[in-house]
Amino acid sequence: MTGGRITAPLAVFILGSSAGCGGPYSTLDPAGPAASAAAFLWWGMFGLFTLVLVFVVGLWLYAMRRDPDPAGGQDVGRVHRRLLVGGGLVLPMASILVLLAFGIPAGHMMLPLPPAEGEALRIDVRAHQWYWETHYPGTGVRLVDEVHMPAGVPVNVHLTSEDVIHSFWVPRLAGKLDAIPGHENVLRLRAYSPGIYRGQCAEFCGVGHAHMQFTVHVYTPEDFEAWLEAAQHDD
């Protein structure tokens, strides 16, 4: 009996790890441009920094094992300077510049700037303890714990909160943004293709925090228009 209890999760784990980085909330399985950019940054930094870590630890181990030259003198001074300037100044500064070169454009791309053509669709989301209330301005459509949106076009989610601070996060589409009482924040969402994506509250908001999830239904633009039409008539 106990054996079964132990082996079952282990089996799940093995299955889970063989499935790779999937999962409905995984940032590593992006389905929108913002999440793709973040995942790209992650893999890039992961690779670069693994090299840095291996290099630093390797150098440290070598320095410990190495026998100091009995001659010493000037040579040692030069090695020291090289280590301090190369490792202490050049290495971090160069890494920072590389990171910024990729990071700043990526961040810029995620901002809710006016799109090149047309206008972004506006959706208002109000956070409550512990549910999400969605409005489509000008239509009277109101949803709870659901967001419906078209694929391929930019959507601006206007966030605010009725009570405490929450955070709106659809990991596979984009980064998170806080819903704060008295403030309105705008999050840009964009999905590559239709489907159902899951979202959750990321900022701790009290007893119900663990259960404050929602779903994002993404349609083709035509299907979205049809859905919106139908939803308006339902009211």
Binding site: T27, A34, A35, A37, A38, L41, W42, M45, L99, G103, A106, G107, M110, S167, P171, A174, G175, K176, L177, A202, E203, F204
Partner: peptide, 11 residues
């Protein structure tokens, strides 16, 4: 790095 932070912040 801000754009990456938006993904993993609070996780």
């Amino acid at each position: 790095l801000v754009p990456f932070n938006w993904q993993v912040h609070d996780t």
